[in-house]
Amino acid sequence: MSSKLKETFYGVPGVATPPAPAALMAKVRTLAPSMTRSMQRVAETVAADPAGCAALTVTGLAERTGTSEATVVRASRLLGYPGYRDLRLALAALAAHQAAGHAPAVTADITVDDPIADVVAKLAQEEQQCLADTAATLDTGQLDAAVAALVAARRTDVYGVGASSLVGQDLAQKLLRIGLIAHAHTDPHLAVTNAVQLRPGDVAIAITHSGRTTDVIEPLRTAFDRGATTVAITGHPDGEVTQYADLVLTTSTARESELRPAAMSSRTSQLLVVDCLFIGVAQHTYETAAPALSASYEALAHRHNPRPAR
């Protein structure tokens, strides 16, 4: 895990602000899969019963979850709180929020027998939850820094394979349309070859939900070694990819199921992060971005509606 990520999730004073109580559920959904089993029990227990857990001491919660006090503290820090006391305060606030009638969203799996209307409703609910979780857990400080790096970059390389390659291509074409130099690489060999040409002032972005896709990690590591600013967009902030990332943007995902693998559900939150990056860059470069966008729209409109031949 990168030092910046440790600062974000381990509560280093003056660096990261603990997440708001409403973001706690999103943190649990996003981070629980990458926790140890004992820490998962702590995270899942506090999410299931925030009011009851808020009344427990660290010893009491350790006994309830069959873990140790040290595990409770580590879980608290991984969820973004400096210590268990801060987590208890967030749990109390969350319990009050729920008592006021704001019940947490409940997701439902899609089955082979579901009518198409139910499939639409369930997918819409999952997508909404995925976007809400990503927005709640996204570190805006890291996002700001990534935007600033993109604005100043000589060029930007984006790496992704499979479903993530589609997201990478989306980001690259967005940046190109506002006049920036950006390339999306889906071939791992070409990605590494191009990464060798990067230098300080350039940006390399790796998109991998699992955080352990070798074909994405290798070019990012090469870019990191060359001094480029490196960014990881991942659903697993403890994944190997973050070892070579100066900045980490964490995404959420709907629950994986037999009919809906993680590659499908993760793309929604990845696209949200891409849109946030693009809008941030466009805001900072508005004087050049706006005319570039207009020119691209005009060129596309002319292509689809060519002037009649004389």
Score class of each variant (00 low, 15 high):
229 T>G: 01
218 E>W: 07
163 A>C: 01
34 S>V: 08
282 A>Q: 12
240 E>T: 15
31 L>G: 02
14 G>Y: 09
127 E>C: 02
221 R>Y: 01
304 H>W: 15
171 L>P: 05
258 E>S: 10
162 G>R: 11
172 A>T: 10
1 M>F: 00
96 A>Y: 02
247 L>N: 06
7 E>Q: 15
100 A>C: 02
212 R>K: 12
33 P>I: 07
53 C>S: 14
237 P>T: 00
151 V>E: 01
76 S>I: 07
130 C>F: 06
159 Y>R: 02
296 S>A: 14
251 T>F: 06
274 V>F: 07
190 L>G: 12
183 H>D: 07
158 V>K: 13
171 L>C: 10
246 D>E: 14
163 A>I: 00
116 I>G: 01
160 G>S: 11
5 L>Q: 13
96 A>V: 13
229 T>D: 07
192 V>P: 02
25 M>W: 00
47 A>S: 13
35 M>W: 09
102 H>G: 01
169 Q>W: 08
56 L>C: 12
64 R>W: 03
140 T>F: 09
11 G>R: 10
80 G>R: 11
25 M>I: 14
139 D>G: 03
77 R>P: 08
10 Y>E: 13
206 A>M: 09
202 D>T: 00
209 H>R: 09
135 A>Q: 12
251 T>E: 04
149 A>G: 01
16 A>V: 03
1 M>T: 10
289 A>P: 01
194 N>A: 15
162 G>W: 10
244 Y>K: 04
84 Y>A: 10
63 E>A: 15
